[in-house]
Amino acid sequence: MQFKLIINGKTLKGEITLEAVDAAEAEKKFKQYANDNGIDGEWTYDDATKTFTVTE
């Protein structure tokens, strides 16, 4: 399945997509990506659109 991450950071904004088996795997990958890029914020997930959002 394809999942999307919307980044609303203080210095980094944008979207990325990835393939994952389920939402838990996608969340783990997205949070690792955010951590690697210094993004720390409030996370939400919309199951209907398979979209994660992180807002700093």
Score class of each variant (00 low, 15 high):
Met1His: 09
Met1Ala: 07
Met1Gly: 12
Gln2Tyr: 15
Gln2Glu: 05
Gln2Pro: 07
Gln2His: 13
Phe3Pro: 00
Phe3Thr: 01
Phe3Leu: 02
Lys4Ile: 05
Lys4Arg: 06
Lys4Gly: 07
Lys4Asn: 09
Lys4Ala: 14
Lys4His: 08
Leu5His: 00
Leu5Asp: 00
Leu5Lys: 00
Leu5Pro: 00
Leu5Ser: 01
Leu5Val: 03
Ile6Ser: 05
Ile6Gln: 12
Ile6Asn: 06
Ile6Val: 15
Ile6His: 08
Ile6Trp: 08
Ile6Arg: 12
Ile6Tyr: 08
Ile7Pro: 01
Ile7His: 03
Ile7Cys: 03
Ile7Leu: 05
Ile7Asp: 01
Ile7Lys: 01
Asn8Met: 15
Asn8Glu: 09
Asn8Val: 04
Asn8Gln: 07
Asn8Pro: 03
Gly9Met: 11
Gly9Val: 05
Lys10Met: 06
Lys10Phe: 12
Thr11Ile: 10
Thr11Trp: 06
Thr11Gln: 14
Thr11Val: 14
Leu12Phe: 07
Leu12Arg: 08
Leu12Ile: 12
Leu12Met: 12
Leu12Glu: 07
Lys13Leu: 06
Lys13Arg: 10
Lys13Gly: 12
Lys13Phe: 08
Lys13Trp: 14
Lys13Tyr: 04
Lys13Val: 12
Lys13Asp: 05
Lys13Ile: 09
Lys13Gln: 09
Lys13Met: 11
Lys13Ala: 14
Lys13His: 13
Gly14Asn: 04
Gly14Phe: 10
Gly14Trp: 05
Gly14Lys: 08
Gly14Gln: 07
Glu15Val: 06
Glu15Cys: 07
Glu15Tyr: 10
Glu15Pro: 07
Glu15Met: 13
Ile16Ala: 06
Ile16Arg: 05
Ile16Leu: 13
Ile16Phe: 08
Ile16Lys: 10
Thr17Ser: 13
Thr17Tyr: 08
Thr17Asp: 11
Thr17Lys: 07
Thr17Ala: 12
Thr17Cys: 03
Thr17Gly: 08
Leu18Asn: 04
Leu18Ser: 08
Leu18His: 10
Leu18Thr: 06
Leu18Pro: 01
Leu18Gly: 05
Glu19Lys: 06
Ala20Pro: 01
Ala20Lys: 02
Ala20Ile: 04
Ala20Asn: 03
Ala20His: 03
Val21Gln: 13
Val21His: 07
Val21Lys: 08
Val21Tyr: 14
Val21Phe: 15
Val21Asn: 11
Val21Met: 13
Asp22Pro: 01
Ala23Phe: 15
Ala23Arg: 15
Ala23Tyr: 15
Ala23Gly: 09
Ala24Leu: 13
Ala24Lys: 12
Ala24Pro: 04
Ala24Thr: 15
Glu25Gln: 09
Glu25Tyr: 06
Glu25Trp: 04
Glu25Leu: 05
Glu25Gly: 08
Glu25His: 12
Glu25Phe: 10
Ala26Trp: 00
Ala26Glu: 00
Ala26Leu: 01
Ala26Gln: 00
Glu27Arg: 08
Glu27Lys: 10
Lys28Ala: 10
Lys28Asn: 09
Lys29Ile: 07
Lys29Met: 06
Lys29Leu: 14
Lys29Ser: 07
Phe30Cys: 03
Phe30Gly: 02
Phe30Lys: 00
Phe30His: 01
Lys31Ala: 05
Lys31Cys: 03
Lys31His: 10
Lys31Ser: 05
Lys31Val: 15
Lys31Asp: 02
Gln32Arg: 12
Gln32Cys: 03
Gln32Asp: 11
Gln32Pro: 01
Tyr33Pro: 00
Tyr33Arg: 03
Tyr33Met: 09
Tyr33Cys: 03
Tyr33Gln: 03
Tyr33Ile: 10
Tyr33Thr: 05
Ala34Ile: 06
Ala34Cys: 03
Ala34Pro: 00
Ala34Trp: 04
Ala34Gly: 08
Asn35Phe: 09
Asp36Thr: 14
Asp36Leu: 08
Asp36Ala: 09
Asp36Ser: 10
Asp36Ile: 11
Asn37Leu: 09
Asn37His: 08
Asn37Thr: 09
Asn37Val: 06
Asn37Phe: 06
Asn37Tyr: 12
Gly38Tyr: 08
Gly38Phe: 08
Gly38Met: 08
Gly38Leu: 13
Gly38Lys: 14
Ile39Trp: 06
Ile39Ser: 02
Ile39Lys: 01
Ile39Cys: 03
Asp40Cys: 08
Asp40Trp: 13
Asp40Glu: 05
Gly41Asp: 01
Gly41Cys: 02
Gly41His: 02
Gly41Met: 02
Gly41Phe: 03
Glu42Leu: 11
Glu42His: 14
Glu42Ser: 04
Trp43His: 01
Trp43Cys: 02
Trp43Leu: 04
Trp43Gln: 01
Trp43Glu: 00
Trp43Ala: 01
Thr44Ala: 13
Thr44Arg: 12
Thr44Phe: 12
Thr44Asp: 10
Thr44Ser: 07
Thr44Val: 15
Tyr45Ser: 02
Tyr45Glu: 01
Tyr45Arg: 03
Tyr45Thr: 01
Tyr45Val: 02
Tyr45Phe: 08
Asp46Cys: 06
Asp46Pro: 00
Asp46Ala: 07
Asp46Phe: 07
Asp47Gly: 06
Asp47Thr: 06
Asp47His: 10
Asp47Val: 11
Asp47Cys: 10
Ala48Thr: 14
Ala48His: 05
Ala48Pro: 15
Ala48Phe: 15
Ala48Ile: 12
Thr49Gly: 11
Thr49Ser: 13
Thr49Asn: 12
Thr49Pro: 02
Thr49Met: 09
Lys50Trp: 09
Lys50Glu: 03
Lys50Val: 05
Lys50Ile: 04
Lys50Cys: 03
Thr51Ile: 08
Thr51Pro: 00
Thr51Arg: 03
Thr51Phe: 04
Thr51Trp: 03
Thr51Asn: 03
Phe52Asp: 00
Phe52Thr: 01
Phe52Pro: 00
Phe52Glu: 00
Thr53Gly: 06
Thr53Trp: 12
Thr53Glu: 13
Thr53Arg: 09
Thr53Phe: 11
Thr53Met: 08
Val54Met: 05
Val54Lys: 01
Thr55Val: 10
Thr55Ile: 11
Thr55Asn: 10
Thr55Leu: 13
Thr55Gln: 14
Thr55Phe: 10
Thr55Cys: 04
Glu56Val: 05
Glu56Leu: 07
Glu56Arg: 07
Glu56Ala: 14
